[in-house]
Design a protein around this nucleic acid. Structure first.
Length: 328
DNA sequence: TATCCGTGGTA
DNA sequence: TTACCAAGGAT
């Protein structure tokens, strides 16, 4: 009994760089909203982003939607079974293509994720740093894999990686293959896999506006489709840069036509700190109220009442801002 | 090859 | 508090 390829694909996309515990509720929600790939393909991108909100790496959600449309139209709703055709799909790379082919279709593909990289690099004590070692690791992984049940094997290996052969302090006493492990023999398991040194994250800052209308609605806008938090909703803010901006300067940048109305009554809230993959961010929330014709305020702005935020594609960062405004 | 792209848990 | 880490992919 092989699993539904749609389920396998959906879970593999969600599990990219994301833990099983985090993915669980999202996977259930998506299957309830869109039980088939056709249903997902028929959904709007905005609805998909809204359901994805909080999971991060939002390009995954945009590609998920694209991929559903591709499978629905170009493949008649049937996921391709072989690695190469899977690789042509948006958001499906070497790992995911091999995983879907092996798990959903029982094909003998070499599956190499971060767990398996760690296990193999320890078994053979591979000193080449990642990501350069990827090819070498894949060759070793190919040599030790069984000829049957590649999908079960891959999942078993990933489970060992997640529970026994862990990054910091592996539980080698519980490991079924420790007697074959070169790093265990040498006693330096935690040194592997060797990775290239990381860069320090710079800090960016901005002023973010909680602009409220007399009926309680707050101003939101949509970010551009590509890049950071692409396609997600946000509270309007100044550009995220290195320098600290005064409240007055921020109002001048974003709402120059309403400087007089806003400058006097702007109230600061507690600083919101958030870390992305490659930089730290400090957002200074400012609460103000304004009554003015929409077209004079902000192009593309949208008034939304806080109790409706749940049905909007707000990333975690913006929910942090909302929390900071509600508290202090 | 290097950089960009989220978030929550953990030591 | 900070840094590191997770079932990667796109450019």
């Amino acid at each position: 009994m092989q699993p539904d390829p749609y389920h396998v694909w959906l879970s593999e996309i969600m599990l990219q760089q994301t833990t099983v515990v985090t993915v669980g509720p999202y996977f259930e929600k998506f299957l309830n909203l869109w039980p088939t790939v056709h249903a997902l393909a028929a959904a709007s991108l905005d609805d998909v982003l809204t359901a994805w909100a909080g999971l991060g790496y939002y390009a995954r959600a945009r590609n998920l939607h694209k991929c559903a449309i591709a499978v629905s139209i170009e493949f008649g709703g049937q996921f391709p079974k072989d690695r190469d055709n899977l690789l042509s799909l948006p958001g499906v790379g070497p790992y995911t293509a091999a995983a879907i082919s092996a798990i959903a279709f029982d094909k003998p593909e070499v599956v190499v994720d971060g767990n398996i990289e760690r296990i193999v690099s320890r078994l053979y004590r591979i000193t080449t740093p990642l990501p350069a070692a990827k090819k070498e690791i894949t060759e070793f992984a190919s040599k030790i894999m069984p000829r049957r049940r590649a999908g079960d094997y891959a999942q078993a290996l990933m489970d060992i990686g997640a529970t026994i052969c862990t990054p910091r302090t592996p539980n080698c006493a519980a490991c079924p293959v420790s007697r074959h492990c070169a790093a265990f023999a040498a006693g330096d398991m935690a040194q592997f896999p060797v990775k290239a040194p990381k860069k320090v994250k710079p800090t960016r800052r901005a002023v973010v506006f909680w602009l409220e209308r007399s009926d309680g609605a707050v101003l939101l806008r949509r970010r551009e489709e590509k890049g950071l938090l692409g396609g997600m909703m946000e509270f309007p803010s100044t550009d995220w840069g290195e320098e600290t901006l005064s409240i007055e300067m921020a109002i001048m940048r974003l709402f120059p036509a309403h400087f007089q109305a806003l400058a006097g009554q702007a109230a600061q809230k507690s600083l919101v700190r958030h870390t992305f993959t490659h930089f730290h961010l400090e957002l200074q929330p400012v609460v103000t109220s304004l009554e003015a014709p929409d077209e004079t305020i902000l192009p593309g702005g949208q008034w939304v009442k806080p109790e409706e935020f749940g049905s909007y594609a707000l990333p975690t960062l913006m929910n942090k801002v909302a929390r900071a405004v509600a508290k202090g």
